[in-house]
Design a protein around this nucleic acid. Structure first.
Lengths: 345, 345
DNA sequence: ATAATTTAAGTAATCGATTACATTGAGTTA
DNA sequence: TAACTCAATGTAATCGATTACTTAAATTAT
């Protein structure tokens, strides 16, 4: 059995005052005399009183818990975002409940419903790759539960989001390759149904155009974020007459697979082919041949998402603030695409 | 404003019965007639009734939330454990609240207190490296909050734990190096205040003894789980008269640093020196020179920790069951220590 | 000195679900 | 038919904190 917890009634009995007074004193209500407030505060500490957050939550309808839905928590990108959210919300008294969708729409719907039922004060989410419908999200919004999207967003009036400027990321990655002297740049795209991958692709095309390089659709291959997928892409690309001299992958794992296959074929990196990945996964910089990659500043993304949420709940509830934050990508140039470095060796 | 939520009173009003009856019907209380039960169930669905878990939790003292305290969530090892716990608990209606200690005792204490105050039903934790005192844990136990330790445990009567057999891990890692023909095996130890690192170290010594290799304390260097630490260790080791021909690191990051420094010194791996790491971090297998490592089956660890917890809360609360689970480590042999492989090349 | 106002605190309802105890009425037994 | 069961449901207290509304006492104003 749980040890008997101290309640405001215990304090009120001990001091011969009403529970209401105790409650008010603890909440620094100005109607309470300084003397009583101090006495209650002292007694509360002495008796080791701890406010029952359940009762409080039941009364005022706020739990100080928020939910986060991510595809997977053990991906560096997502766990860093979670860490960012947590570090911003914890000092504000919020706790974070984490759920995984495993990239399955069905799980996402179920997790969202459970969260709503658990009475969270808000939801942070990155939409699953397979999500086609939006009824579950509409339902959350109808219940007036604030949602903040990060990385993978959906468009709803009044709903805030924090995303990366994927277009720009695609642009600077491609531009960097062009600057390295490449002009047959292949693109390993992600699932084109997702906005983020579409934007990276568009950024790529835009850079080509800007530098007057003809766009060749044979150089674009849709991949999943898996190593095998990168291996297969290279296999396919190297069947072309006119082979690529660079690869810009929309994901680090596919980039890694591509590099493995290129090495397999004794193709030199970066001399023959330059490679750029996406996400700046920890492994990219640990490789013997460190991989150039786009950093999405995930921890910052989480931090900002949390700030947007706090702004929203602290402000006037009847006004809905929609805030679209777009973070700038950062290109980490490493050996897999750095030909200049070679000259110094 | 939140949309008005449907309560059992709304249902009771609609059906002209008491709220008690509605509650009982929804809970499948046998005292309720089948007819009423069915009617209530039907009406509840129609009205889109959702049980208020806060009210329920306040009444019966259980929230169906558990807390997890880990040093960092964005470490593959810990996030995989969390995933394991989650996947086991979610189907049982539990939700998981995650906190990070950042390896600071002070944070650990604070997080634990906040969790207790949040009325969680149990706590899963891996003790921070810097934790010296145990008052906070004793306090949780006094409040009868079940605790399950994983990986890094503390000894308390009645408290369960799920850990790796680190002694065995140290033993098989070292034995493997001996089998590869090494006999001056260095050990990059972790913080020796932590049981896990002591055990890995003991396993190492035990293997040396078993194979009649003299233990040389100059070959043991205490490192932190950082790359730089591994670089520094190699620098120090290579100042020795009699240099090592193998390195068993108690962490993958130190192993990675060691490998970087060895390559820097043009020392061949595994020909001249074999390297084994610990944790099987994702990057170990993606390297150009994949690193041999000990897998701690973290997801399994989380799964089992969750099972232990469920057993405990489902059983008779007045009996405390203490369960010590020790998982077997698995050695993934890769190129960094596989000399046999060379012959086939 | 008395009325008006302010201050400090108390009373009781409320949040939503659960449950010990009470009640009703149909059916059973002697 | 009176006494008794028992199934089905109702009443009201409870979990702990908050707060609208009241009240008592102290202070100020007239």
């Amino acid at each position: 059995m749980k040890k008997d917890k101290i309640t405001i009634y215990d304090i009120s009995k001990k001091l011969n005052i009403s529970a209401a007074t105790v409650s008010r004193a603890l909440n620094n209500n100005p109607k309470i005399s300084e003397k009583t407030r101090a006495l209650v505060a002292k007694t509360a500490t002495e008796m080791n009183y701890k406010q029952n957050r359940l009762a409080q939550a039941l009364k005022n309808g706020r739990t100080n818990n928020v939910g986060i839905i991510v595809p997977y928590i053990n991906r560096s990108f997502f766990s860093s975002i979670i860490r960012g959210i947590e570090e911003e919300l914890n000092p504000n008294g919020y706790h974070v409940i984490i759920c995984q969708s495993h990239e399955e729409e069905e799980n996402e719907i179920q997790q969202l419903n459970t969260l709503l039922n658990t009475q969270i004060d808000g939801i942070f989410m990155s939409v699953s790759k397979t999500t086609q419908t939006t009824d579950h999200i509409r339902k959350a919004l109808e219940e007036n539960t604030p949602i903040v999207f990060f990385d993978r967003k959906l468009e709803f009036p009044g709903v805030s989001s924090v995303v990366l400027d994927d277009f720009k990321a695609g642009f600077i990655a491609t531009e960097h390759l062009i600057n390295e002297g490449c002009n047959r740049i292949a693109h390993l795209s992600g699932d084109i149904n997702l906005e983020i991958y579409r934007n990276r692709f568009e950024g790529y095309k835009s850079a080509l155009k800007e530098y007057n390089i003809a766009y060749d659709k044979n150089l674009v291959i849709q991949t999943s974020s898996k190593i095998e997928s990168g291996i297969q892409a290279v296999t396919q690309l190297w069947e072309l007459e006119n082979k690529p001299d660079a690869i810009f992958s929309a994901g680090d794992y596919a980039a890694l697979g591509a590099i493995q296959e290129l090495k397999n074929r004794k193709i030199k990196i970066p001399e023959d082919v330059c490679v750029v990945g996406f996400s700046n996964e920890p492994f990219t910089k640990y490789m013997e041949l460190p991989i150039t990659s786009i950093d999405q500043t995930p921890q910052m993304m989480g931090k900002i998402a949390a700030q947007v949420f706090l702004e929203q709940v602290k402000g006037n509830q009847t006004i809905s603030i929609e805030k679209k934050v777009v973070l700038a990508p950062e290109l980490f140039i490493r050996e897999s695409s750095n030909r200049k470095l070679l000259k110094f060796k």
